[in-house]
């Protein structure tokens, strides 16, 4: 009998989420969203640690290549697995 545990799990999560959501609406958490965007920046800002010009282009290209290679590999293996799944 799995239902009591499963329903308990979902019910606890649902009730907590609903209570907090209603609190957020009542408390005005969804208002003034434009100001909220700036909240991390309202702290004092440290001086710039490095100039933008020190940006190493080759490092970006390498990162891009690795990212694209990862994407291509993931895509290739997905296609491969689908072709071989005897669907």
């Amino acid at each position: 009998m799995y239902f009591p545990y499963f329903i308990t799990y979902m019910a606890v999560g649902f009730v907590i989420s609903l209570v907090v959501f209603l609190w957020a609406i009542k408390n005005g958490q969804f208002k003034d969203q434009k100001r909220a965007r700036f909240l991390p920046l309202e702290d004092e800002l440290e001086p710039s640690v490095a100039k933008v010009s020190t940006f190493k282009r080759y490092e970006v290209y390498t990162l891009l290549f690795l990212a694209l290679a990862g994407l291509a590999a993931s895509g290739a293996v997905l296609v491969f697995s689908l072709l071989n799944a005897n669907i």
Binding site: Q33, K34, A36, R37, F38, P40, L41, D43, L45
Partner: peptide, 11 residues
């Protein structure tokens, strides 16, 4: 946002 010194795109 802090590292970019830019506000979040959309809260």
């Amino acid at each position: 946002p802090r590292a970019c010194r830019a506000p979040l795109y959309s809260h």
